[in-house]
Computed example of a mutant assay.
Amino acid sequence: MYAEERHQAIAELVASRGRVAVTELASHFDVTTETVRRDLSQLERLKLLRRVHGGAVSMRSVTMLEAQLSDRDQAQAGEKERIARAAATLLPEGGCTLLLDAGSTTIRLAGQLPPTEQWTVITHAVPIAALLAPLPHVEVHLLPGRVRTATQAAVGHATVEAVRHLRADLAFVGTNGISVRHGLSTPDPEEAATKSAIVASAQRVVALTDASKVGQERTVRFAELEDVDVLVTDSGIEPADLKAFEAAGVEVLTA
């Protein structure tokens, strides 16, 4: 089989299945995994698929990986409320400087900031800034950048550069997927770059995610597990996953 024929066959296979693994393709076409990776890179440049960790997904699948913020807010709403309340117990007495990532769970956490303390909140999320700006016990700093419709959060070079010049006591980040193998990940590269900068700019990092995202691997990794101090999730997490995260050095708090 010529390379062009293999490329067409791979593209058709990914389109029909939605996702395929490198090892599966190598076995199917009797070529090396290195050859498959080169094939996938060429097909990605042609926008026929999107490479992900260990394989590729169809472009249709990629567009479905990231729901709008309003849709995500309704999904697992009860779990997210409990996660936010549990995360609030990690807030230090006396207040501090917080970096708050965009997301349906982090906005719930923002509403949990005790009014008896003074807080400095740095965020790229427009809804979080709008929620906190009127409150006298919170000093809000909204980061610059282009606001994405899907997340209502600022992203881009200006956002990343602004975060890199900051140092916060505590960061709360959301994620579209988390696994021992792939770490924390999200579909959008610009969103990932901002999240990565947030993680790097905090002395302590807390990840907030409901159990449905555990084991999920999205296109772009923005943090390794070792970058996270605490994972706050709900009681739906599988015992095996909980043990795996703890073995990787992450403290897990279940709500």
Results as ranks from 00 to 15, higher is better:
Glu12Leu: 11
Gln76Asn: 09
Glu79Ala: 15
Val14Glu: 10
His7Val: 01
Arg38Tyr: 01
Thr63Ile: 07
His28Asn: 02
Gly78Glu: 15
Val31Ala: 07
Ala15Ile: 07
Leu65Glu: 04
Arg72Thr: 05
Asp73Asn: 10
Glu66Arg: 10
Val62Gly: 01
Ala67Pro: 08
Leu40Ser: 12
Gly18Phe: 15
Glu34Cys: 03
Ala67Cys: 04
Met59Asp: 03
Arg37Thr: 14
Ala56Trp: 01
Leu48Tyr: 03
Ser70Pro: 02
Arg17Ser: 04
Ser27Trp: 06
Ala67Thr: 09
Glu24Tyr: 01
Met64Tyr: 05
Thr33Arg: 11
Ser70Ala: 13
Leu65Asp: 04
His28Thr: 01
Asp39Met: 02
Ala9Cys: 02
Thr32Asn: 08
Thr63Ser: 11
Ala75Gln: 08
Gly55Asn: 11
Gln76Phe: 08
Thr23Ser: 09
Val31Tyr: 06
Leu25Phe: 10
Leu43Ala: 10
Arg72Leu: 11
Gln42Cys: 02
Leu13Asn: 00
Gln76Ile: 13
Glu44Pro: 12
Lys80Glu: 04
Val52Glu: 07
Val22Cys: 07
Asp73Ile: 14
Lys80Pro: 01
Asp30Cys: 12
Leu65Gly: 06
Ala21Met: 03
Glu44Ser: 04
Ala26Met: 06
Ile10Ser: 04
Ala75Glu: 02
His28Pro: 00
Gly18Tyr: 15
Asp71Ser: 15
Thr23Gly: 13
Asp73Phe: 11
Ser27Met: 00
Val52Trp: 05
Asp39Phe: 09
Met64Lys: 06
Val20Thr: 00
Asp71Cys: 05
Arg6Val: 00
Ala56Gly: 03
Ala15Leu: 08
Arg50Ala: 15
Val22Phe: 01
Ala11Asn: 10
Val36Arg: 05
Thr32His: 09
Thr63Glu: 09
Thr35Val: 02
Met59Ala: 04
Val62Ile: 13
Arg60Ile: 07
Ala75Ser: 07
Ala15Glu: 15
Ser58Ala: 09
Asp71Thr: 04
Ser61Cys: 12
Asp71Asn: 09
Leu43Gln: 04
Arg72His: 00
Thr23Ile: 06
Ser41Ala: 15
Lys47Ala: 11
Glu24Ser: 14
Asp30Leu: 10
Arg51Thr: 12
Ser58Lys: 06
Arg38Trp: 08
Ser41Met: 11
Val31Cys: 03
Gly18Lys: 03
Glu34Pro: 15
Val62Tyr: 10
Glu5Phe: 04
Arg51Trp: 10
